[in-house]
Amino acid sequence: MHSKLIYVIFATVLLIAGILVAIFLAESVPNGAGLAHAQFNGMRVGGNGVARLEHIGTLAFAFQALLLLLIVCLAALGVAEERRSKGFWAYMGGTLLFSLFVWWQMYSNHQAFLETGVTSYFMGFPVATAWQVYGTWLAAIPLIVLYSVGFRKFIFTDEDEEKFEQLLEQIAKKSEQ
């Protein structure tokens, strides 16, 4: 079961590990993980955003893109192989594309802010942050919908329930004997 998918998951994890190693080896910058605020104790600032992403921006983008792929593959692993139809994969592919789109919008809007220093706002947050707050959260909603609405089709069918009841009956009979 799941023979091919586990290899895809394994390859994705190894690629993520490889990117992490590359980030470890990349030239570091003083504000890579932030700096103390000059005025307020306990507060930290990011400082020069361009410098922070100069050596690792592309690697970090790829890291997250692979993580989104990993999430979709792991969710698919939770669905029995025989129910992973073409329609199922199309849906999961769409979910992945949606997640990648949100990630791209967040990243590119952040880049645009770094270049221009100006941003518009959406529902209380700068646009790039709004993609993070609302977009990232919404990006997994298709998975929730598939689980809740498609529960009887993909997760636990009537046939599954019947098989499980039979298994419990067999175990009960054995223990009586």
Partner: peptide, 12 residues
């Protein structure tokens, strides 16, 4: 940076 998606702590 503090109000952008990766905050003060940075992207990683």
């Amino acid at each position: 940076e503090a109000m952008m998606p990766f905050g003060a702590a940075g992207i990683m």
